[in-house]
Amino acid sequence: MKKGTPAFEFAKGLWNDNPVLVQLLGMCPTLAVTTTVVNGLAMALATSFVLIMSSLMVSTFRKWIPGSVRIASYIVIIASFVTLADRFLAAYFYDISKALGPFIPLIIVNCIILGRQEAFSSKNTVKMSLLDAMGMSLGFLIALVLLSSFREILGYGTWFGIKLMPAFFKPWVIMIMPPGAFFMLGIILGVSGVIKNRANKGVV
């Protein structure tokens, strides 16, 4: 795929430039909410909404926003969408909103979102920015679901709340505690790095 084509801008977020596995951005929600798959998935979806909407706004108004106040403008735009998502969840999906608690408001400081505005949406067309935002959102979702699946299966013995491990399996409590997030993320980063190196050897 050639750089600059719509397909490239969408697909880069999935693997080659995956926000979590390659760019190592958005580590706070990645480590904190991935105790269960449901939490990880809901977090990824809420973040996707904010990222896609912010990219749409920033790329639409990119020519009017002066360079010296761009970061402040992006933050206000992002914060508005986060608050919107937070209120909507509380009004229509009260249980999910209760389960995710403080992590929805914290999407504001997720570096992936501000990073994409600064690196991409502020310099590219609306169409390309939307594709970029969707690709990055999907990449974030893949990483979060992967990490939270391993943590939930090992830490609780369940997946999406369904019992998966045999009765003699003793849950590894460490996996649902903060250190478990670091262990698991380290392993996933290592494995994805090895796969990437192998794949690149054939090309170069």
Binding site: I65, P66, S73, V76, S80, T83, L84, R87, F88
Partner: peptide, 16 residues
Amino acid sequence: VLSLIAVISGGSLAVV
């Protein structure tokens, strides 16, 4: 520009 963005986002949040 910054005031406009703030007013628009403040307004829409108030509506929501």
